[in-house]
């Protein structure tokens, strides 16, 4: 039975060019190799990128806020704080795990206490003892009045977490919050 070739195949056959069917097995191997390597690299990039994004997004919480305050000024600080607020609100509404919940709760306690659920006993203290002081400092930053408010806020937080000022110091979240408002209230 004579094999019917299409004009291209016929031309290949006449010019002793290897048939496309002969090449395809080698090409397939190479293609598969490229495909899986590409897939592997894509996955590697994706996971690396997402973890980097996560670290970056976590660090926005405090260090970025502090950096944005010293480099980008108030507008950058308020914009980053707003971003952080929406991120914490999402985390609190559907935490992925207990670590994330603890993280979000701690940041909310010191920066966005209104986001905490009413069932949280700490909410009342935060809403009364430092949230109004933070708002007042943000309204009149870098003033003598802001520094007086900061001193009151600092006292409230130390008395709340570690009244004896012992070796444990403050929690990471409390001390980072104080760093931010210390910077913001510096006359």
């Amino acid at each position: 039975m004579t094999k019917i070739l299409n004009p291209i195949e016929k031309s290949r056959s006449q010019n002793n060019i290897p048939s496309r069917h002969t090449l395809s097995s080698a090409q397939k191997t190479i293609a598969l190799f490229i495909f899986f390597s590409g897939l592997g690299l894509t996955m590697l990039f994706f996971f690396t990128y997402s973890s980097l994004t996560k670290i970056d997004s976590d660090s926005i919480s405090y260090s970025t806020l502090l950096t944005s305050l010293s480099t980008g000024g108030y507008s950058q600080f308020y914009s980053d704080k707003k971003l952080l607020r929406s991120k914490i609100a999402t985390m609190l509404s559907s935490p992925q795990n207990e670590t994330e919940e603890t993280y979000a709760t701690n940041i909310a306690l010191y920066l966005f206490p209104d986001l905490l659920p009413d069932s949280n006993f700490e909410k009342i203290v935060a809403v009364e003892q430092w949230a109004p002081l933070e708002s007042a400092i943000e309204k009149k930053p870098r003033s003598h009045e802001a520094r007086l408010l900061f001193d009151e806020m600092k006292s409230n937080i130390w008395n709340y977490e570690n009244p004896k000022m012992d070796r444990s110091g403050l929690s990471l979240y409390a001390s980072e919050t104080l760093k931010i408002y210390h910077e913001l209230s510096a006359p």
Binding site: D151, E152, K154, S155, N156, W158, N159, P163, K164, M165
Partner: peptide
């Protein structure tokens, strides 16, 4: 009563 500077602050100012 093992007072710290912040215990004093509370008594004096708050």
């Amino acid at each position: 009563g093992q007072f710290s500077q912040f215990s004093f602050f509370e008594i004096n100012h708050q």
